[in-house]
């Protein structure tokens, strides 16, 4: 089964996208396969609402492991399942917590194993801060590295917020070569295009 990895800085909405996209594809509950950085695996079953309150929040690095959901998409005449993997946020600098650092290493390692890489950017934050701050070194480097590894595209998330339009402009200007989809994990705006694109590349 192909892996489709979600990467990005902390708090851009990676987990929110995972859950919201699962809901968009018709799931009411998800079975999350959690793979911690020390290699152990466990599964937890949650309704999407419940998982949302548990796993999504304003504090960075809630996700400190790889957590994945198996999803199905109609491809051609049949359906194809793939594993959508959510990862811990990548940030610059040396993080104080060893758990977070190990999680970041795990994320980078997962990049090589993924067939499709979905890089999420926070369009609202980028719009607010402007180019130099919002699209940081880490995003550029990550984009460059991930592009060599597999199918790669960008999601400009949080399009429901003010300033996101400006952020989107900045993003498309900064990443001219890359396909960018404006979405909102909260309102499911733009998911139709993402779904179509994912079905094409898996």
């Amino acid at each position: 089964m192909h892996k489709c990895l979600i990467v990005g800085k902390p708090n851009v909405g990676k987990t929110a996208f995972l859950l919201s996209f699962s809901r968009y594809l018709g799931l009411a509950q998800v079975e999350l396969r959690v793979r911690t950085s020390d290699g152990s695996i466990h599964a937890k079953r949650r309704s999407i609402d419940c998982a949302y309150t548990e796993l999504v929040g304003p504090v960075p690095h809630i996700t400190q492991e790889l957590q994945s959901v198996v999803l199905e998409l109609p491809v051609g005449k049949g359906r194809r399942s793939f594993e959508l993997v959510d990862s811990s946020g990548i940030m610059d600098g040396i993080h104080a917590s060893p758990v977070v650092r190990a999680a970041m290493a795990q994320t980078l390692e997962a990049v090589t194993a993924a067939k499709v890489i979905i890089h999420i950017l926070d369009a609202a934050a980028i719009g607010l801060l402007g180019l130099s701050e919002g699209v940081g070194v880490i995003d550029r480097d990550l984009a460059e590295y991930a592009q060599q590894q597999g199918e790669y595209f960008l999601l400009a998330n949080k399009m429901d917020l003010a300033g996101a339009q400006r952020g989107l402009q900045i993003i498309t200007k900064a990443f001219t070569q890359v396909q960018t989809f404006p979405v909102s994990a909260l309102t499911m705006e733009g998911f139709k295009e993402v779904k179509r694109h994912v079905a094409r590349v898996i």
Binding site: S37, D92, R101, A102
Partner: peptide
């Protein structure tokens, strides 16, 4: 090295 904190993610 990244996990140990000897190098940054970048």
């Amino acid at each position: 090295e990244l996990a140990k904190g000897n190098i940054t993610a970048v």
